[in-house]
């Protein structure tokens, strides 16, 4: 499992508009920034999206990435977490081989990680777990000997600890968000 240096977690607030993810992805690809994960979702405000990007690069490269992201018209704010304390969470769904002989062992291990079983089939289990990137890595390593049949991770969602409120949650947004077939977005 690739180890992610914790400081390089970016939170990017963007307009919720068709094409924004393409612009961000295009920038990352073109400038050659290595990313470990990128997640995107809505926020409490209509028209405002929030991305968490985990960047797998050295500090100068990350500074460049931030400077470039700040040039996109659709980007309201870029926070570089890791300058202070933060919470980083990843969610995994993992389908593990678990025939009758080892099933209880798998269940026990899952419990250690406070993971929950969300599906049971004859020879396998699907386990869900939320936690820090390290914890998820450890869970996956623990399950590997049993045989992993399928695995999906969301990628990290991160937030700074404390009371700092991002200005993007108050900044003006376009009157309308995008036009045309929303289904064609991103």
């Amino acid at each position: 499992m690739p180890h992610v240096p914790a400081p390089h977690v970016l939170v990017v607030y963007t307009d919720d508009e068709p094409g924004v993810l393409t612009r961000v992805a295009s920038l990352i690809r073109r400038r050659g920034f290595n990313i470990h994960s990128l997640t995107v979702g809505p926020t409490e405000r209509t028209g405002l999206s929030r991305m968490t990007i985990v960047v797998d690069s050295d500090a100068p490269t990350v500074r460049q990435a931030v400077a470039h992201l700040r040039k996109l018209v659709n980007v309201l704010e870029v926070q570089q977490l890791g300058e202070g304390p933060m919470v980083v969470r990843d969610l995994v769904l993992v389908r593990v081989t678990a025939g009758p002989k080892v099933r209880s062992e798998v269940l026990q291990l899952a419990q250690v990680f406070r993971a929950t079983v969300v599906d049971i089939a004859e020879d396998s289990l699907v386990i869900e777990c939320t936690g820090s990137l390290d914890k998820i890595d450890a869970l996956v390593d623990a399950m590997r000997p049993f045989g992993i049949l399928e695995l999906g991770r969301t990628g990290a969602v991160a937030m700074a600890r404390g009371t700092r409120i991002p200005s993007a949650t108050r900044a003006p947004l376009p009157l309308r968000t995008g036009s045309g077939p929303e289904a064609m977005s991103v």
């Binding site: 376009p174 009157l175 036009s179 045309g180």
Partner: peptide
């Protein structure tokens, strides 16, 4: 899509009321 890397920004406008903004 084609011109993302060679423009500062671009727009796809599909409604008359969005043209002026």
């Amino acid at each position: 899509g084609i011109t993302i890397p060679v423009t500062k920004h671009n727009y796809l406008v599909t409604r008359a009321e969005d043209i002026v903004p």
